[in-house]
Measured scan of single mutants.
Amino acid sequence: MAAGGDHGSPDSYRSPLASRYASPEMCFVFSDRYKFRTWRQLWLWLAEAEQTLGLPITDEQIQEMKSNLENIDFKMAAEEEKRLRHDVMAHVHTFGHCCPKAAGIIHLGATSCYVGDNTDLIILRNALDLLLPKLARVISRLADFAKERASLPTLGFTHFQPAQLTTVGKRCCLWIQDLCMDLQNLKRVRDDLRFRGVKGTTGTQASFLQLFEGDDHKVEQLDKMVTEKAGFKRAFIITGQTYTRKVDIEVLSVLASLGASVHKICTDIRLLANLKEMEEPFEKQQIGSSAMPYKRNPMRSERCCSLARHLMTLVMDPLQTASVQWFERTLDDSANRRICLAEAFLTADTILNTLQNISEGLVVYPKVIERRIRQELPFMATENIIMAMVKAGGSRQDCHEKIRVLSQQAASVVKQEGGDNDLIERIQVDAYFSPIHSQLDHLLDPSSFTGRASQQVQRFLEEEVYPLLKPYESVMKVKAELCL
């Protein structure tokens, strides 16, 4: 049975990233139509530049190519590739079939990587351009969430054990800070992308030097003109047959890092959902379990974690691919890159769409948070109580021993009897502590235990987050809708 299948058929496997999760716009960027249309555009740009620099290419040939950029006979191309065992030459023939007058000058002087690699770089750039505003929107939604809850005390956790208090907004800023680093890295790697350009079979530009009869300047002009037509500021000066596969490492490393950030955020949300302090959106008709109707599973956060793990592992592909590119190139890269580049971007696209949807509907339960604080705060307040007693004339050592005994009794009630923490009640009825009984409410005010959390939130948002989001103001209103 021949390899390949009808990918629109229910009898043929289709990647869930495309069929179930990723956005239509990201799927289109990695589609065959987008790819092969870009090949034709690159052939047109090459012909236009070659004509401008004096090669015998007519206006009629150029116009014929322009008129057929979208006229792609995919069936013919597939048949040609089956016959020739070469995808680029299959599309040269297919393009030439609908451009008979231009057929002889299509791909003039070029090698397969002229269309293959340059198209990949265009796709990487455009895919990054799709991700950047999506990530900015996630940051914006979380920034709104953090600002609104900047002063809401909550129990902090280290080692997932109760620690000092923080605020809900401050905790959210930990998430935002990681995503801001990801946004900066995505922008950097996007701006650092260079075009492969017009380089020939081993990167020496020998074929173009021959076409222009040894004119170095025209060869350099050709490279520059096509690079500018493709919208790049610069091209690699040095290439082998391909652009260095280190570029793929750079791009997928940034995406993998984004995956790590999203995994951490969504894990926190899942843990908070278990504590009943916070939940992701839950639709009115949504079913959490087929057997347990009360369940409210954090399905979206779980999906993000599941896909983020996949995204983090994909960076190993370009690392290994770059390491086995012998001399000017081997074909070890080809099949692998067809999979890992598309999957990385479709996965990143999915987790950003999902995280935006989550961040637009996060639900906080202040009463649950308050109750958990009441359970733990008495123990945390013991040092403040000791200091207040010393100020009232008591002995630190005597007070410490009193607190120690009462704390152990209260802990026994919590752990052995399943009761509430009654340390404060014990202190309130103990005559030894009568000098500070009137101060206990103040000493137990949760806001006095959150330090500068709310001020940190305000400063972080104003100095770091809002300036970073400013270039994306025009796209901030787009909502994230999930079908599944």
Results as ranks from 00 to 15, higher is better:
4 G>P: 11
4 G>D: 14
8 G>A: 12
10 P>C: 03
10 P>L: 10
18 A>S: 12
21 Y>T: 13
22 A>L: 15
23 S>K: 00
27 C>S: 12
29 V>G: 03
30 F>M: 03
39 W>V: 08
41 Q>H: 09
41 Q>E: 06
47 A>M: 04
49 A>S: 09
51 Q>F: 07
51 Q>H: 10
55 L>E: 08
58 T>Q: 10
63 Q>M: 13
64 E>L: 08
66 K>M: 15
68 N>T: 07
69 L>A: 05
71 N>H: 04
75 K>Q: 00
76 M>F: 00
76 M>Q: 12
82 K>M: 10
85 R>E: 00
86 H>L: 04
90 A>G: 09
92 V>C: 12
93 H>I: 13
94 T>Y: 12
95 F>Q: 05
100 P>Y: 14
101 K>N: 02
108 L>A: 06
108 L>R: 06
111 T>L: 05
113 C>V: 09
116 G>S: 09
117 D>R: 04
120 D>N: 05
123 I>E: 01
124 L>Y: 03
125 R>I: 03
127 A>R: 02
130 L>V: 07
130 L>N: 15
140 S>R: 11
141 R>G: 09
142 L>Q: 15
149 R>T: 06
149 R>A: 01
152 L>E: 04
153 P>A: 04
153 P>Q: 11
155 L>H: 06
156 G>R: 03
159 H>A: 01
159 H>G: 01
159 H>K: 10
160 F>I: 07
166 T>L: 12
167 T>Y: 07
173 C>A: 03
173 C>R: 05
174 L>K: 01
175 W>T: 04
177 Q>M: 05
178 D>H: 06
186 L>R: 05
191 D>L: 11
193 L>R: 06
193 L>C: 14
197 G>K: 02
198 V>M: 13
200 G>N: 01
203 G>P: 00
203 G>W: 05
203 G>E: 02
204 T>L: 04
213 E>N: 07
217 H>S: 05
222 L>I: 12
227 T>Y: 02
228 E>C: 01
228 E>L: 08
230 A>N: 13
232 F>Y: 13
233 K>E: 08
235 A>C: 06
238 I>W: 14
240 G>H: 00
246 K>G: 09
252 L>S: 13
255 L>C: 11
271 L>W: 10
275 L>F: 14
278 M>Y: 08
282 F>G: 07
287 I>F: 02
287 I>R: 04
290 S>I: 02
300 R>G: 15
300 R>L: 04
305 C>D: 11
311 L>W: 10
313 T>Q: 05
318 P>K: 08
321 T>A: 04
322 A>Q: 12
324 V>Y: 06
325 Q>K: 06
326 W>A: 08
328 E>L: 10
328 E>Y: 12
329 R>D: 04
329 R>H: 12
329 R>T: 07
332 D>L: 12
333 D>G: 14
333 D>V: 03
336 N>S: 06
343 E>F: 01
345 F>H: 01
351 I>Y: 02
352 L>I: 13
359 S>D: 00
361 G>E: 02
362 L>E: 07
363 V>G: 14
367 K>E: 15
369 I>F: 05
372 R>H: 06
373 I>W: 11
378 P>S: 12
380 M>P: 15
382 T>C: 12
383 E>M: 13
385 I>V: 05
392 A>E: 15
394 G>V: 03
394 G>R: 00
396 R>G: 09
396 R>Q: 15
397 Q>D: 01
400 H>F: 13
401 E>V: 10
405 V>Y: 14
405 V>A: 01
405 V>D: 07
406 L>P: 00
419 G>N: 01
420 D>K: 14
431 A>S: 02
432 Y>L: 11
432 Y>T: 14
434 S>N: 05
440 L>Q: 09
451 G>L: 05
451 G>W: 03
454 S>A: 08
456 Q>W: 05
460 F>C: 15
464 E>N: 11
468 L>H: 01
469 L>R: 04
470 K>E: 12
472 Y>S: 00
474 S>E: 01
474 S>K: 15
477 K>T: 14
477 K>M: 13
479 K>W: 10
481 E>F: 00
481 E>L: 13
482 L>A: 14
